[in-house]
Nucleic acid binder design. Structure first.
Lengths: 329, 329
DNA sequence: AATCATTTTGTAATCGATTACAAATTGCTG
DNA sequence: CAGCAATTTGTAATCGATTACAAAATGATT
């Protein structure tokens, strides 16, 4: 592969002039520009990013931290990030942490090493202290999960309000016994969604019963199945379930079907996230839709601004309750 | 962020010595090594990948081309690639082409630009001619979809055999009217799977009826729903369906359920890929399992060998028929 | 202490680009 | 055509590392 030197020789100009042509600098005469462009074509020259990036001390790479690539919740967000990044001549590096601190460290080092220009973290298990430390000297944006009262800019939705509205929807349908399948409350969103759940119940003078609140270890399908099995074994069964993620809700659906019961006739279900599969289940799943693509776009734009040195403000985006068959009793 | 120069000054040695310590070169005395290590700690120094990579003219980045990140088929493969890459101090850059030639070009240029050391392509719509051209001067591996008779090494499974076995399974269950939901036969795997389907039918003297072979435009859920609707409208309905992807099969499932029919009692269904959701549907889906994680690992290993300049041979891995509820009539 | 082999360290070139500054060229005016 | 401004081009430093080669330090031997 040719380098800028060889192009310069072939065109009979200096490397500076070639560089100017490459970067569309104004001060190149048409005649020399053509000479250089021809040389570039003849040699099949492509500028090396390595040299360019070293000189400009930027990599034009954005890191995207997420716990697991197989979680469909992230796919649309990633699309939003990716499109925005490409539109600004950035590329993204998807980094699966598996909630593993060692992996996390590798990626933090990539930032320090100048191999990436900034990070968007969507990992709720991220070491927030280390991330905050990193954020002091490098651009960092949080997406979806965030640090309440922290200093890192974030983009998210109002989880408490969304949960409140979802549960209110179940109450309006006549349900008085509403279960919550929550994840571990070490996560902020889990605490917020529980809080919304409780607010709705209180508003309608419905009791908050601990046995109707189930905490799962992970957000996997199987955790939802398991949660539902437990709930169905209770003396007093709930008539509706609010799950804090679609994957859990789909698991719950499976648990109910496996028990010979019918959704929504015997139990209504609401999920959260509006992942693509929530529309493919039988019955289709009522869910809270996060504006995932937009969240991705927003996060990427914020990060790019931040890289440019501009100040950015956190953003809370709107959500939607998508009513489908699983609550059409 | 400190650079190697500052570390050298602080430690009272030359940059060469610092570099030697960084790269664990043998010829550094314990005394100076300690001095340097202390300076590194004090300055919180991290070597810049940019400088290192320029000098070594490598980026230690692997490109992974895929049509869409939201296709769950790829997630396990990616995990395999990623783990193997990290184990060899590489990182991966996930590139969604959206089957868009312009996007594709961006990524091909990244290779030429030395921003990545090699590519694994999983994109069946890739411009094979351009890719073959690229492969002449850069390491390229194909994963899953490949170029029959082409020069690029690949890792894949025997699609024809897998399809043959799947259809044979349906025949053994007593089905004589078996439909095929295929994707566009411009894809090699589609032609191979159809061929396996036909071989099984012929072997049991069952007729191959064109109206039972449906070609979908894409591999989306909705295409499966649509395909099933068409098949159910036929005068002579099939009693079993073999779909060339799980997402299509899950769509078909939905189409059948929406018609008041029951799987597997009225129709049996087999999918392909064993994506995680195939185990979450109701009924669970019989499917052909590709060793996705292993495919990813293998592809990554082949690519890394190829980057090192070693010769690599194409690999065909084993598959499995996973029998679940959708064929337990 | 002189000699020589071995180990350790330093000097300076190098990777491939960008860019400040200087130098050369061009064009205009009187 | 001299003189000057504006435009165009070139020279050389720079980004941050690695490494061939040279030089210095160390240690062993006589």
């Amino acid at each position: 592969m040719a380098n800028i030197q060889q192009v310069a020789e072939k065109a009979g100009v200096s490397v500076a002039t070639v560089s100017r042509v490459l970067n569309h600098a104004a001060s190149v005469s048409t005649k020399t520009r053509l000479k250089v462009e021809n040389a570039i074509k003849e040699l099949n020259y492509e500028p090396s990013m390595l040299g360019r990036n070293l000189r400009n001390s930027e990599s034009r790479l954005l890191l995207v931290l997420l716990p697991s690539i197989s979680n469909p919740f992230y796919t649309e967000i990633i699309n939003g990030i990716q499109n925005t990044a490409i539109a600004n001549s950035y590329n993204i590096l998807l980094c699966e942490t598996d909630s593993n601190p060692q992996r996390e460290n590798i990626y933090f080092n990539m930032i320090k090493n100048k191999l990436a220009d900034g990070v968007i973290s969507m990992d709720p298990t991220v070491n927030m202290q280390k991330l905050t430390e990193l954020a002091e000297s490098h651009p960092v944006i949080l997406c979806s999960e965030y640090d309440e009262g922290g200093s890192i800019p974030y983009v998210t939705i109002d989880s408490e309000l969304a949960a409140y509205q979802a549960v209110k929807h179940l109450i309006r349908l006549g349900n008085k016994k509403i279960a919550l399948i929550n994840s571990d409350e070490k996560f902020l969103y889990a605490r917020q969604r529980r809080s919304g759940y409780e607010r709705a119940l209180k508003e309608f003078n419905l009791p908050i019963r601990e046995e109707w609140i189930y905490h799962t270890r992970d957000l996997e399908f199987q955790n939802g199945v398991q949660a539902m099995r437990m709930l169905l074994e209770l003396e007093e069964r709930p008539t509706a379930v609010f799950a804090v993620s679609d994957t859990l809700a789909i698991g719950a659906l499976k648990g109910i079907n496996g028990n010979g019961l019918h959704v929504p006739n015997d139990l209504a279900i609401i999920g959260f996230d509006n992942i693509s599969f929530s529309n493919m289940t039988n019955p289709t799943l009522t869910t809270v839709s996060q504006p995932m693509y937009k969240m991705g776009m927003t996060a990427a734009n914020m990060l790019i601004m931040s890289i440019k040195g501009e100040q950015v403000e956190s953003v809370v985006l709107d959500h939607d309750l998508i009513i489908r068959e699983s609550t059409m009793g």
